[in-house]
Amino acid sequence: MAQTIDITLTTNKKEKPPENKLGFGIYYTDHMFILDYSVEKGWYDPRIVPYQPITLDPAAKVFHYGQTIFEGLKAYRTKDGRIQLFRPQKNFERLNRSNARLSIPDVDGELALQALQELVRVDQDWIPSAPGTSLYLRPFVIATQAALGVAPSTEYKFMIIMSPVGAYYAEGMNPVKIYVESDHVRAVKGGVGEAKTAGNYAAGLNAQQAASEKGYSQILWLDGVQRKYIEEVGSMNVFFKIDGTVYTPSLNGSILAGITRDSIIHMLKSWDIPVVERPITIEELYEAGANGTLEEAFGTGTAAVISPIGEMNWQDKPLVIRDGSTGELTAKLYDTLTGIQNGDIEDPYGWTVEVKQ
């Protein structure tokens, strides 16, 4: 049965930050969405309320057993004033796949999308319009039952918060430097690597910090068993253009099924550019770099959209790609995808969803 979303508007609106100083995930809008769950009631009491702290019992299972998942997507303001979302249904489909892996009950995708659109409508004045900016949307679920027994929670909160953002990387669309991690392991097949859960990101923080100290923007993870197959960057899936064909690691159970990744594959195929999903070794990549067939490399993700990779470092062996410059295909993909997202280019794929104002 359809649920009515209760809306309580704030009486104390925040001052909005300058659009040229947004950063990423620093500022938050005036309102948020909350939906509660209990075994007896199921998901209940959908509501939009003023942005505020939440109170949890110290024994809440999210703190002790990491039972939490999240999503990330964006809202865009078009030049003619419309508001667009990009493939939001895919985010909620993936959210429920993550829920299933973490023994969290499914969230009604239609209710979640309705809540997301309503929240964006309520806080639409927070959507920035400067080039390269957007409103980042963070749906997430946390286990709230106060019990220390190791078992799935019987109580949860599904929430959505929003943040006006600029570029994820300080480099913007300039190529980033990536450090190939050979010691630490993020995930293995059969684990939770394909779920968007907090532990996956916590597992990478140590290696990420070490890479940052060496001057690298992100970590490129290798597989956790043989330590030779390329998997993903901490916040992005990866693509490599080698001798005219674009390659990306196949989804193997330990790689996040990125929605931007899927969009890029669709776009490449529609342009008749060969794209292959298969296991790729780091040795193969370095060999392509040595013989001159590695033409471009880039990462994809909701936060960064598309980020060119200008240099990689594996076992203290730097590999500079295109002399550190952005490739033509990478730039075309970025311009086309962001053009569709922000309404500058017609959407031939039916990906965008307009939010009623």
Rank of each mutant, 00 (worst) to 15 (best):
D262L: 04
E232G: 04
G244W: 03
G258V: 13
S270N: 11
G204E: 13
A207C: 01
I230R: 01
P274H: 05
I265R: 11
G301K: 01
V225L: 14
N206F: 10
G258S: 14
D243F: 00
G190V: 11
A303P: 01
K228C: 09
N206G: 11
G204I: 15
L220Y: 02
G289A: 13
A257C: 02
E295F: 06
A203Q: 03
E283G: 09
V238P: 08
E311I: 07
E213D: 09
R261S: 12
A288I: 05
E283Q: 15
G193S: 09
I273R: 05
G253P: 03
S235V: 14
E194H: 10
F298D: 06
A211Q: 08
L222E: 14
V275W: 10
M267A: 10
A203F: 14
F298E: 00
H266W: 11
L222Q: 14
S217I: 02
D262M: 09
N237K: 04
T248F: 02
L251G: 03
Y216Q: 02
E231T: 15
N237E: 03
V233F: 08
D262F: 03
V246N: 02
L294D: 08
Q209L: 09
V192G: 09
I264R: 06
M312A: 09
N200A: 14
A304S: 12
E311Q: 15
A210M: 07
K214N: 12
S250Y: 04
I230Q: 01
G244M: 03
G310W: 07
E231A: 10
G234M: 04
K241R: 15
K214S: 12
F240A: 08
V275H: 11
W221E: 05
G193T: 09
H266Q: 10
G292H: 13
P279R: 10
M267R: 13
D272E: 09
K317Y: 09
S263C: 10
A304K: 04
M236A: 14
G258T: 12
W314H: 08
F298R: 06
W271G: 00
Y286W: 11
A303G: 12
K214H: 14
S217E: 14
A257N: 09
G234R: 00
E284Y: 13
V305Y: 04
I242L: 06
I264S: 10
E213Q: 11
W314A: 03
G292L: 00
P308E: 03
D262K: 15
A288T: 07
D223Y: 11
T260Y: 14
Y216V: 02
S250D: 04
I242R: 05
L294K: 11
F240V: 00
V233W: 05
Q209K: 13
G215V: 01
P279T: 10
D316K: 12
A303H: 04
V238A: 01
A304G: 05
L285C: 07
A257L: 02
G299P: 03
M236G: 12
A198Y: 14
A210G: 04
A210E: 07
V305C: 01
Y201I: 03
E295Y: 08
N252W: 10
F239V: 04
M312Q: 04
T281Y: 13
G253W: 11
I230A: 02
E311L: 10
T293I: 11
V276E: 15
K269F: 02
Y247A: 05
P274K: 07
D272I: 06
